[in-house]
Amino acid sequence: MAKVFIYPTTSLILSDLVSRFGHEPLGSALGIRERIQTAGFDSPPLQVTPEEPKKGLRWAAVEVPSGVRGRMAFIGPQIEEAEAAIIINDADLAFGCMGCARTNELVMFLLRHRRIPVLDLTYPKSEEEGEIFVAAIREFLEKLPKGGKAE
């Protein structure tokens, strides 16, 4: 089972398809779950403490806004852990404030920089595109170590 980073990190479609084809999707829910389930000081809503932007310094310089560094504290370790990545390039839902937008650019850069296998996609807009979308993800995942068959 390979660890596959998904972008958008909250994508239902990618998360489902990656786990359906026998691999482990790395998305934002895992990072949030880890923080929500760790005791400490109350820091609602996501239990992101002032420590997180300090951890983010590993991936972004100190003059980069703390919003980007805080997000990188979630996403950075997952990028380092990932053995492959699937990216949907026209995901408007991943765009939010400038913190999100700049983090997205940094995530793309770091994924390319790691030189792991990356599958670039766009959202399907027809049944024919849906067929190619799903089949391409399966083919991509089957090439990774210990690929599985559809359940």
Partner: peptide
């Protein structure tokens, strides 16, 4: 947003067995 596209994914999943041995999707 993603649920509005999910019917295309469902179609893709249903079509997977028919693609065996066909052209590479990649």
């Amino acid at each position: 947003f993603e649920l509005s596209l999910i019917r295309f994914i469902s179609h893709g999943l249903e079509a997977l067995p028919h693609r065996e041995g066909g052209e590479s999707a990649l």
